[in-house]
Every structure is written in structure tokens, then in C-alpha cells.
Nucleic acid binder design. Structure first.
Lengths: 222, 222
DNA sequence: TTATTTTTTTGCCGACTGTAAAAATAGAAT
DNA sequence: ATTCTATTTTTACAGTCGGCAAAAAAATAA
């Protein structure tokens, strides 16, 4: 949004022409709308109104609605890809209990700073048909696989590989549910999804739900 | 669908006039469509095509799309309400570990016999705004409260009331996620959501995820 | 300045939506 | 048989959708 000082030195930012900031403006508006509405319910006109421009402008930068959504998902996946390196920093130096607690704390804090990513994923995760029907969504299992692989190299686990994969998948989908649909989940708990109570519940409950599992995977054999 | 022998003895089924079977035909088709598509994506014409009738017929029995969806959700909630009594039968005679395993096994088996209920709930659970925006959905927290209350009377728990509520809410939303979005969840696990592997994984994984929590709630103090 | 390119806006298309009312059909009662 | 009512089908409408083309505007280059 704010790219100050670009008026005078237009030569420095060769790549960032005027069109690029318009492109980002569209992506930002689309992110907000797609985080509130599933793919088919969100419309290009909604996005245009959200961003304060006319809807055919979208077509100038993105050939179709599917392309726009795909670009948004790709952006979100990229951000998660970058973030998960930070999340894992120093995790190998801690015992499983502390490590899992720190990891979850980092993920939750990240979400409260930038909640749209989880929400966009969550909005479209429920369909019975193949996930491939939603543009960009095939990237998500890939992201999960990369995260698992990197975590695998970082932290020493001794359980069978298949169960480690299941542990990660469970943790991942549960986090997406608790964070991405936090409004609904919090309502079931009788909490306010934006308040500190729910945020604290998230951290303790996720640790409590997954620590026994992780413990089993990090010990030689039970 | 099949109500044979109604031609001759039309006097017996006084309540079930001709219109009532049409009403059920519509509800059945709507159930199937709403289990595959979120509320706004599903259309009355989809439902009509699914059921093999003309779409304005819906309006004769249901004043609006919201009313139809509300009737479907009410039906689903009623079925869950009836089912949860069966799920809890005999649970008080078992230790927590066996009891939770049996409960989950019953829920999973129920879902595989009639999967549409969980799917319909899951399809529309992700929206950020209030759950009340979806017709019929305010019934769901009520259902959860009733189930919790009945379980509370059946099984002896000693933990703080607030945590018991959180335990139930977590178990509930996790089951809805794992079952209602089984296609996606199974894909993350690398399994086929209709196959026996995923079904077995569901049972063991849910028990493993929630037994430690339940154990804490059923003991005097840790 | 003028000429050229890039960006934005206006207007429209066919398809689809929920809702509405009219027309057709069926069944039962008189 | 006819009349009346309940049910179903047909037709229609006003609104929104994604996509497209051409005009208008703005920015850039000459």
C-alpha cells in the first residue's frame, strides 16, 4: 500500500511501475473478500467495491476470476512457506513439550497479525469433490509436504514415517480449523474469537491435544 | 421415496397426503445438494434437477430458499438429537478410555451410514461473520449444549465446568472437521476418504487426541 | 507541443439467480 | 357430468454474475 518516495526517483523502481501497485491493490482487496466469502460466493464486483475501483480493471491484470484467486492463494502459500522457517527456529534445542508450545504460540501469534491466510484456506476446504476444483488449492498439500519435510530434518523423531505424516496432517487441519474458522469455533466455546480468552485457549488446547501424540513420536518406543 | 401401497388405502395415511411425499422429495434432494455445496453456491435449480422436478415446485412448499435450507438444517439437527441418545447408551458403565472409544466408533459409523448431516454443517461453518447469517445454524450451538448437558448427566466428570465445555466443543468441531470435510482431510493424510484406512484412522486418531484430556477431567485432580 | 503507449472507465452480453404470477393438470366432492 | 380445490408446470421478471470490447483518460515518449 504505502510506497513513499516513489514520485521523484521513478528510475530506481524500474520493476514497480504504476501498474504493479494497482495489481497489488487488487490482490489486497481480493484477499480481504476471499477471506470472508468462499470462492463462488465472492464476486469480482465485491472485490472492486472493497478496493474502490471498477471491476473490469481486475481483468486488465488477471485474465479471469480463477486466475485472480489462484494468485491470491499462491501469495498466501508463499507467505506460509516463508513463515514456517521462522516458526521452526530453535525448535531442535527444546524438549518436545516446550518445542510444540513454542511452535503453536508462534503460529497463533502470526495468525492474529495476519489472519486472512488461514481464513481463505478454510473458506474453501469443505467441499466434497476434489480439492483441485478450487484454483490454487493443489498448492496446499504441497505446502504441507514441504513443511513436514523441513520439520522432519530439524527435529529428531523416531516414530514410523506414516504416523509422522498423520500427526502433521492432523495438526495442520486442526490449526486451520481453529484459526481459519475462529469465529465459529469460538462461538461453540462461548468465547469471543477476537478476544484474549480465545487466543489463550487456542495455545493451551492445541498443545494439550497434540503433545501426547508428539511425545509418542519422539521417544524410541513406548 | 418408496412408500408402496398408498394407492388403495389412502385413508390410513391421513397425514401423509400427496403433498407430503413431494415435500420429502424436495427435502431429500436439497439435502444432497446442500451437502455438496455451501448455501450461496447451491441453487434451487440444482436441487430441482437433483430431484427431478421443476424448481418453482420448491416455492409451493417452502416460501424461500432460506426456509428450505432452514428446514434441512432442522431435520439434520433433529437426527443428531435422536442419534446422540443412542451414542451415549451404556457409556457410564465403561472406563473413560473404553467409553470414549465406543462413543467415537458409534459417531463414525453413524456418519458413514448417513454422511450428509456433518457435510452440510461443515459446508457453511467457515464464515467469519456471525453464524446466525446462515438460516438454521443457530440451532447448532443449541444442539451442542443439549448433547453436553446429557453427557454431563450420564458420565461422572470432576473437572471444572468451563473446561468440560471446552472439551466438548473441541471434540465436536474436530469431529465435524474430520467427518464433514473428510475428502479434504483424507487427502492431506494421503488416504481415500471413502476407504477403510481413513475410517480406521479416524477412530484411533480421535481417541488418541482426546483421551488425555478426558482422563484429566474424569480424575479428582491431576 | 504531438504522438504513442499504458491504464482506467463505460457500456453491454448471455447466463444464471430467487421470486412471482399465470396457466395447466389432477383428484375429490357434489 | 360439473365444480371446486390442491398440486404441478409453464412462463416471466428484475437483479447479479463473469467476461468482453471499445471509448475515455492518463501517463510516457517523441
Amino acid at each position: 500500500m504505502e510506497q513513499a518516495g516513489n514520485k521523484t526517483d521513478s528510475k530506481i523502481a524500474v520493476e514497480s511501475k504504476k501498474g504493479d501497485i494497482a495489481r497489488e491493490k487488487i490482490l489486497d482487496a481480493a484477499r480481504r473478500v476471499f477471506s470472508r466469502h468462499p470462492y463462488h460466493e465472492a464476486s469480482l464486483r465485491m472485490i472492486a467495491k472493497e478496493g474502490g475501483f471498477d471491476h473490469p480493471l481486475i481483468r486488465y491484470y488477471f485474465p479471469s476470476k480463477a486466475d485472480l484467486f489462484g494468485a491470491v492463494v499462491a501469495e498466501v502459500v508463499d507467505e506460509f512457506y516463508a513463515a514456517h522457517f521462522v516458526w521452526m527456529k530453535g525448535l531442535d534445542l527444546l524438549p518436545p513439550g516446550k518445542g510444540l508450545a513454542l511452535l503453536i504460540e508462534r503460529i497463533v501469534d502470526h495468525h492474529y497479525e495476519s489472519p486472512n491466510g488461514m481464513r481463505i484456506i478454510m473458506q474453501n476446504i469443505s467441499r466434497t469433490e476434489a480439492l483441485d476444483a478450487i484454483p490454487g488449492y493443489p498448492l496446499i498439500p504441497q505446502l504441507l509436504a514441504v513443511m513436514r519435510s523441513n520439520f522432519r530434518q530439524k527435529v529428531l523423531l523416531s516414530g514410523p514415517e506414516a504416523e509422522i505424516g498423520q500427526f502433521f496432517a492432523s495438526l495442520f487441519v486442526t490449526i486451520v480449523l481453529y484459526l481459519g474458522a475462529s469465529s465459529t469455533t469460538a462461538q461453540f466455546l462461548g468465547l469471543d474469537h477476537a478476544g484474549p480468552h480465545y487466543r489463550a485457549w487456542l495455545k493451551s488446547s492445541l498443545v494439550f491435544q497434540f503433545l501426547p501424540w508428539l511425545t509418542r513420536l519422539s521417544l524410541p518406543t513406548s
